[in-house]
Design a protein around this nucleic acid. Sequence first.
DNA 1: TAAACAGGTTTCATTATTTGAAACTTGGTT
DNA 2: AACCAAGTTTCAAATAATGAAACCTGTTTA
Lengths: 267, 267
Amino acid sequence: MGRVTGDGTVGKALEVLDQVAAFGRPVRFGELLAQSDFPKPTLYRFVQTLTNQQMLAYDPERQTYTPGLRLVRLAHTAWDQSTLAPVARPHLDALSKAVGETVHLAQLDHAQVLYIDKRNANKPVQMYSQAGKVGPAYCTGVGKVMLAFLDEDAIESVIEQQSFHGFTEHTLDSADALRAELHDIRQNGYGFDREEHEPGIICVAMPILTSAGRVLGALSVTSTTSRTNLAGLEAYVPILRETADKITRDAQNWSFPDYQTKETTGI
Amino acid sequence: MGRVTGDGTVGKALEVLDQVAAFGRPVRFGELLAQSDFPKPTLYRFVQTLTNQQMLAYDPERQTYTPGLRLVRLAHTAWDQSTLAPVARPHLDALSKAVGETVHLAQLDHAQVLYIDKRNANKPVQMYSQAGKVGPAYCTGVGKVMLAFLDEDAIESVIEQQSFHGFTEHTLDSADALRAELHDIRQNGYGFDREEHEPGIICVAMPILTSAGRVLGALSVTSTTSRTNLAGLEAYVPILRETADKITRDAQNWSFPDYQTKETTGI
DNA sequence: TAAACAGGTTTCATTATTTGAAACTTGGTT
DNA sequence: AACCAAGTTTCAAATAATGAAACCTGTTTA
């Protein structure tokens, strides 16, 4: 049978893990089987193995599987070591305080936007539920500004992977429309979300680039059409740029930090 | 060579993943090799495969590996589906608002405490960096109250896995001391952390149990000896109990929620 | 009460993948 | 130029994964 994933057995097992996660709800073995390329016993063993390894959790009551707790543990380390979040945190705090609107930090993951951190000006933040979330690149502020500063080939490759689903009447609906928008963003150095993903929701977004111009991530300030407009958001461009610059600087300097596992203030 | 993990190739690969995560910093191939049971080419291929699969991230600059972004994506789903967090969230918010101190939600993972959610009364929360963190069970409030309500066999099994490292002069330093403490906690229905993990840090903790008495998780209110004392914290017991009860109730009712992937308020 | 059934689990000979000693690169030192 | 450490590739042997078929087990239907 054709190469399903590459990367042998491990790749196949992780494919199953993704499949479970993609359901977005507890899923039964049979449901997985129905949409799996693997024969029953093979899938069965993968699910068993993953459950053993706590990468999946099994609910015997309902006979369903969900992604497991081990992932939460591992992701903590991933978030802390493989993302901009730890470097950006203080700057994000400052930005949030200054603008008083919802603020996001995102990175590009494959052809999608991966939200890494968030500050919600008002309510006690409910962050974790947001960090880790993925969104479309072609119709979010952060997505577009990150795309805009990739190199030609990378842009085309990512564009090919976009679905151009029309979330709202303002959603860019073609590769060409997106290319034009990316061109504008490169000119300006920043971009907007003009209710492209959700009606009433608008944002300004600023890329975070290395000094060599490589894309590290993006920042955005989000608001609603009832509270402000694009011109109002544009006022945040200077502070966004400053914040992005600070993050860039810290990210470069952050070569190898001191390594003692200084258990700061104990969870 | 002895069975290293069980669970075949997948188990071995995940063992490597854990090893990288355990370093807590970017790690070189050679460093992994030095403490690995696997021969060089075997380890090499695992690391390659995991990197391919975005379970590890490779920094070509420094030639180091860290846990990968795919884990952050997967953990988002895990947190949302396999933990108490989504059910507990509103109650945690309310508790936090009422007590004005730092509040934690934790679950038991293996023999460790896994922190699932947190509310920090004062500053804009920096949560994700905490959720996913693991801590010792024998010297934290949440750890002890969860242990206390396991059944005999489970308790002994978990006790065996504790290290009894003396974090402070108050840390319980033996299985017997811990058994006695767990007995008291069962009597009272709740427990304290008496500066056992960190000097100056104290907390009250309340288990979250099913109506049948099975341990689901635990809540705690944390403060410092400079701001209050154990008697002061004890005043929070009623509201903690109420909150735990509400979470229990919601968790039971939360059988199968409605399934439409209602994208609430966009990220 | 039995027969059929759906969903899940196990068997076992076949097949494909993993394994690791050794050899080989590559980039940096002496 | 010779050496060395770290990382990478080769390839035959050893092992683990595979999946058709058979088998459970609890539930519904005749």
